[in-house]
Design a protein around this nucleic acid. Structure first.
Lengths: 219, 219
DNA sequence: CATACGATCAACAGATCTATTGATTGATGA
DNA sequence: TCATCAATCAATAGATCTGTTGATCGTATG
């Protein structure tokens, strides 16, 4: 028999699964979710070669996870839509709940740096209204420039050590970066606490914030 | 440098992605979602060899998508939890929205058999309260026996032709089967309409109904 | 037009995935 | 204990995936 239409569909859906089936591509998706990026820029962020990056991107595109457009001599890639973020969240959720190896990394690395419950969107939104909290973006400057939480201050993790004076008077700091597993905000919170600064971490990152329809700024 | 904790996590999540990256495994997940199943039973449903089925199941298990328990000489596999269904729904959603090849199959095959908007959970629930609608389960008898929508009648698609008399007086029939891409209910609706019976299809299947907390029965 | 640069393509070796085959384990019941 | 059935394991060939290399294409710029 010719393969049933259901299997034909599942073949297509499996293509998406395979696209999600490589750690580098998941990493690329996280970076792309920060905002449109060219191939070389992505290659630099992920540490892969340009050709390799290009090929991975094409695989993501064939799977319908990203789109691209040409601008001058650059080809800019972006997430296809917000459903892709939802899909990644579902994937991560299943991993967190059902894989012991994931729990272990979360415990051994991430919880060691931030024993406190992270701040949720709602909580942060409520606190910023009171004006008591300093929102700190610890991503590199280019990602901050592309887009950031409305009202956030940018101090890339690299520079945090030297620019502590800019925030040491803040009564409370909430740091964020690219997403739930982005290490920058964990390191930042850890460093700030050592200096006696009252710091917590936002549970997710910029893309989730934007997807929730909460206010962002550029520039 | 040793791979960062983020990449270590993404490596684990990618394992889940790869588990979703094969049409047969997606098919198996759909079958397992109907209720616990042994390896041989699944092999029969999917048309794969026993050994092959066993290996696919172990891959799904390593990815945290299914669990298993021994009962006598059978090993019964079941979905790890409802988040797995949510993950599959997210995967299918991205495919439907972003892949032209998926739209094409949906148009060419599925819409051809059922041009009407499918019935949603809410709609069906409301109509059954009025007692006007006959809910028809067109899956094989063993799957019906394992679990079915509360109040549903079982006529497997194979037998529909010969058992039309049982439902031809119903003012309205809603047919369902395993999930959104299960062909049985499409074929059933198509066949019933040809006989002049007022038939529509439930948008999703038994697993989604159960996961939504709606009433099911066994036996 | 020639050059530079971003991106893609083509070809390749090594790793991983898939399905088959036949042997092996585990539990049941004669 | 032996025979049986369900399931897994082990080994294999063929297909697919991954990352590298060097060539090529498309666009902007001097």
């Amino acid at each position: 028999m010719s393969t049933s239409p259901k299997l034909k569909l599942y073949e297509e859906f499996a293509l998406i699964g395979r696209a999600l089936g490589n750690a580098h591509r998941l990493d690329m998706l996280e970076h792309i979710a920060q905002g449109e990026k060219g191939v070389d820029a992505l290659a630099a962020k992920t540490g892969l070669s340009t050709a390799n990056t290009s090929q991975h991107l094409q695989q993501l595109k064939r799977a319908g996870l990203v789109d691209s457009r040409r601008e001058g001599k650059f080809v800019l890639y972006r997430l296809a839509d917000d459903n892709v973020l939802a899909l990644m969240a579902a994937l991560f959720g299943v991993g967190e709940r059902n894989l012991a190896s994931v729990s272990k990394v979360l415990r051994d690395y991430f919880q060691a740096r931030d024993s406190m419950e992270p701040v949720t969107h709602e909580e942060l939104l409520a606190r910023t209204r009171d004006g008591l909290v300093t929102v700190l973006d610890v991503r590199p400057a280019d990602e901050y420039a592309a887009e950031h939480l409305a009202g956030a201050v940018n101090i890339p993790l690299d520079e945090l050590e030297n620019r502590l004076s800019e925030i040491e008077d803040a009564p409370e700091v909430v740091a964020y970066c690219r997403g739930p597993y982005c290490v920058l905000s964990f390191e930042a919170v850890s460093a700030l606490r050592k200096r006696g600064i009252n710091a917590r971490r936002l549970k997710s990152g910029l893309p989730e914030w934007r997807a929730a329809g909460l206010p962002v700024e550029t520039g």
